[in-house]
Design a protein around this nucleic acid. Structure first.
Length: 489
RNA sequence: GGUUCCGUGGCCGAGUGGCUAGGCACCGGUCUGCAAAACCGAUUACAGCGGUUCGAAUCCGCUCGGAACCUCCA
């Protein structure tokens, strides 16, 4: 594979040249949602980040197996290992069968992802569908002596693990410090140490999601699903594991420990973590109750939103920041993104209409090299996008006759622009086509024709009246050389 | 308290030693009956103080301010 893709590895805290374990195959695992509520803007970040990675790896010629899980059991509501299962709680509140609730939010998640033009993963395993695999993993960990049973539950023995391996290598923690800083929590007497975590939890009598096991009627711990499913579909050691930065500890730290304890080998080669989306400088999150659902964005239905935003605007907005930086939400930033995206899309449409010349007056290969150089540098999408804007500027200048392009260059430009915009960044124009062909559009054609007649008679009083009154209805008329177009604001 | 990170022009956001990213807004221009849209062009910056260096937004130190993780979170 002839490229130099560098990816920042959270484990080594360095950018590393990406070399697959078994090229051209690449195994990619990303933590998906816990489906107990509507997807919000925060869910869009990893989905989009790793969608671009998935697309780019495929563009580079790799055969990628992309696994993104659905967490539908075991994710507890409160303090580690003592709260209620999130799905069960929500199901109780909404008086639904837990799997009914899961199905509802999975459907909604898929709908939102589709709108954001996120490719479906190769495999989307559910935690509840892999109870057997999780139980088998628990047995392996018990057999190797890194877990213990306590009152029907099974806990991971962090101290025991730490004698042979290193717990905390991902998040830069050590167990002594953790011990010193751990708050004593009620109801944790089953554990030998406060930072031991559950592999299997005995279900209390009112708990509705539970499975039989030799330890108890119960359910698996949250961290276990990713270890079990990652191993099942991608192998004991695989290439890339992604997720939000907030999952780095404890979730991914525990995942590493479990996998190594069970299999005796390193779990993941490259760990990638996307940063958070902030709102007024603070993390957008369920617990802070400052999150905006994706459907609310698409409909403009939230007190923080001045109006609705298209899914592509949100995708572009997120890609204008590098994935390891925080990105701050604001209406102003979103509207800026909307206009910028529009500019790129119309430049893209212009390419097919450009006239060619015997010579090119600009350096196309420089733009192309800069763009792929940026993508190879830990997916620096903002710089790649800046290069697309440079290309757009040149496309417009060619269209104005102020720059020229040869036929081969034009072909290459078109191929480059579409590859980056559509195939890699996944930015496509929203279909404005839905307005065409209906009554509204036919009526507008009549009004525009009448106004054109008035203008031809130099009856500007009438033509301006038509335009002003349409303006009052938030319908904007644009007179161009090719005729008059209209758009709703 | 521990661990980690950040502070760039009106707003968003790249850049980690020399070559004023980019977008949006503002301003100037082209086009237009006028406007809008579109396009072209120009301007504005590196939290503060000290240090290293021929040269620092970029390295080091201090100060101030902010964030994340350490408990569920994408």
């Amino acid at each position: 594979m002839d490229h130099k893709l560098f990816i920042y590895n959270s484990l080594s805290r360095k950018k590393e040249n990406f070399i697959p374990i078994n090229s051209p195959y690449v195994g990619l695992y990303v933590c998906g949602p816990t489906v107990y509520g509507e997807a919000h803007l925060g869910h869009a970040r990893p989905a989009i980040t790793f969608d671009v990675l998935f697309r780019y790896l495929k563009y580079l010629g790799y055969k990628v197996r992309y696994v993104r899980n659905i967490t539908d059991v075991g994710h507890l509501e409160n303090d580690a290992d003592s709260g209620e299962d999130k799905v069960v709680k929500k199901a109780r509140l909404e008086q639904l069968e837990p799997m009914e609730l899961v199905q509802r939010y999975v459907n909604s998640y898929h709908e939102n992802m589709l709108k954001l033009n996120i490719l479906p993963p190769s495999i989307e395993p559910h935690a509840s569908g892999h109870i057997i695999e999780q139980q088998q993993m628990i047995r392996k960990i018990l057999k190797r002596g890194f877990a213990y049973e306590s009152n029907g539950s099974v806990y991971f023995d962090v101290n025991k693990y730490n004698e042979k391996y290193q717990y905390g290598k991902l998040s830069g923690r050590n167990t002594e410090e953790m011990m010193a800083n751990t708050r004593e929590l009620a109801g944790q007497d089953e554990k030998r140490n406060p930072f031991d975590f559950a592999l299997w939890k005995k279900a209390d009598p009112v708990h509705i999601m539970h499975w039989p096991s030799e330890w108890s009627e119960g359910f698996p711990g949250w961290h276990l699903e990713c270890s079990a499913m990652g191993t099942k579909y991608l192998g004991e050691t695989f290439d890339i594991h992604g997720g939000g930065m907030d999952l780095l500890f404890p979730h991914h730290e525990c995942e590493i420990a479990q996998s190594i304890a069970a299999n005796g080998v390193d779990h993941v080669k490259t760990w990638m973590h996307n940063n958070m989306i902030t709102i007024n400088g603070q993390k957008m999150g369920k617990s802070l109750n400052n999150f905006i659902n994706l459907s609310e964005f698409f409909e403009g239905n939230h007190h923080l939103l001045e109006r609705a935003y298209c899914p592509m605007t949100i995708r572009f907005f997120i890609l204008q920041a590098q994935y390891r930086s925080t990105v701050d939400f604001s209406n102003e930033a979103l509207q800026a993104a909307e206009k910028g995206l529009k500019r790129l899309l119309s430049a893209g449409e212009l390419i097919g209409k450009l006239k060619t010349s015997p010579a090119s007056t600009f350096n196309l290969s420089e733009i192309i090299n800069e763009t792929f150089g940026a993508l190879n540098d830990d997916l620096n999408t903002p710089i790649a996008i800046a290069q697309l804007f440079e290309a757009a500027r040149i496309i417009n200048l060619i269209n104005d006759g102020k720059e020229t392009i040869t036929k081969p260059d034009l072909l290459e430009l078109g191929k480059f622009f579409n590859s980056v915009m559509i195939d890699i960044l996944g930015l496509i124009s929203e279909s404005n086509v839905e307005n065409k062909g209906n009554l509204e559009s036919e009526l507008m054609n009549i009004i525009i024709d009448l106004r054109l007649q008035a203008r031809q008679k130099k009856d500007f009083q009438t033509s301006d009246l038509i335009r002003d009154r349409l303006n009052n209805l938030n319908v904007r008329l644009n007179d161009t050389k090719e005729g008059t177009t209209w758009e709703k604001e």
